[in-house]
Amino acid sequence: MKKIYIAGKVTGLTIEEYQKNFRLATKFVEQQFNTKKVINPILLGGIQYTWEENMKLCIKELMDCDTVVFIPGWESSEGAKLENYIARSLGYNIYELKWSLVSDCFSDIHLIYGEEK
C-alpha cells in the first residue's frame, strides 16, 4: 500500500465540523491500517482557495495513493464524488467508514470496491 487518501464532504459544513470529521477519520485509518501514510486533504488547501483550486491540489495528492477511505455523507459532495470516480477508474481500493452514534466516533471500516490488502 502506497498512501491512503481520506475523502469526504467539506462544502456545506462548518469549519469545525469538517475539521473534526477529517481529523477523526485520519486517526482511525492510521490505526486500522497501521500506517502514517494517510493524506488528509483538509491540510492541503484552505479557505483562501477556490473550490476548483482546492480540488486540483487534492487530485494531485490522490494520484500518489492506491487506497481511498470515504467519510459518511460523501455521496452529497461533488468533490468526493469526483474523487470516487477517479479512484474507481484507476482501480484503487475504496473503503467507507461507519459512524457510531453511541460513541460519537468512527467504529468500523469496510471495503466497497477493490481487494482487501
Rank of each mutant, 00 (worst) to 15 (best):
G46H: 15
G46L: 13
G46C: 08
G46N: 08
I47E: 10
I47Y: 04
I47W: 06
Q48W: 04
Q48I: 15
Q48H: 04
Q48A: 11
Q48R: 14
Y49T: 10
Y49R: 12
T50R: 14
W51D: 12
E52K: 06
E52L: 11
E52Y: 08
E52A: 12
E53I: 15
N54T: 13
N54G: 15
N54P: 11
M55P: 03
M55A: 09
K56I: 15
K56R: 15
K56M: 08
K56S: 10
L57C: 08
L57N: 04
L57H: 07
C58T: 07
C58R: 01
C58E: 10
C58S: 08
C58Y: 07
C58I: 14
I59A: 07
I59T: 13
K60S: 14
K60P: 01
K60F: 12
K60M: 05
K60Y: 09
K60E: 14
K60W: 07
E61D: 04
L62G: 14
L62P: 11
M63A: 06
M63P: 13
M63W: 08
M63T: 13
D64G: 04
D64T: 04
D64Y: 13
C65G: 03
C65H: 07
C65I: 11
D66P: 12
D66N: 15
D66Y: 05
D66F: 08
T67K: 11
V68W: 00
V68C: 06
V68Q: 00
V69A: 01
V69Y: 00
V69F: 01
F70A: 01
F70E: 00
I71Q: 01
P72V: 02
P72N: 11
G73F: 15
G73C: 10
G73S: 02
W74Y: 06
W74V: 01
W74P: 00
E75H: 02
E75W: 06
S76E: 08
S77D: 06
S77P: 12
S77F: 06
E78Y: 06
E78C: 03
E78F: 13
E78A: 03
E78S: 10
E78P: 04
E78H: 12
A80P: 02
A80I: 03
A80V: 04
K81S: 14
K81Y: 06
L82W: 03
L82H: 03
L82A: 11
L82K: 07
E83N: 05
E83G: 02
E83T: 02
E83F: 05
E83V: 10
E83D: 06
E83S: 08
E83M: 14
N84R: 07
N84A: 12
Y85D: 14
Y85P: 00
Y85K: 06
Y85S: 10
Y85M: 03
Y85Q: 08
Y85C: 14
I86Q: 11
I86T: 10
I86C: 07
I86S: 02
A87F: 04
A87G: 11
R88A: 05
R88K: 07
S89Y: 11
S89F: 09
S89C: 03
L90Y: 09
L90V: 02
G91Q: 01
G91T: 02
G91A: 05
Y92M: 09
Y92N: 13
Y92D: 07
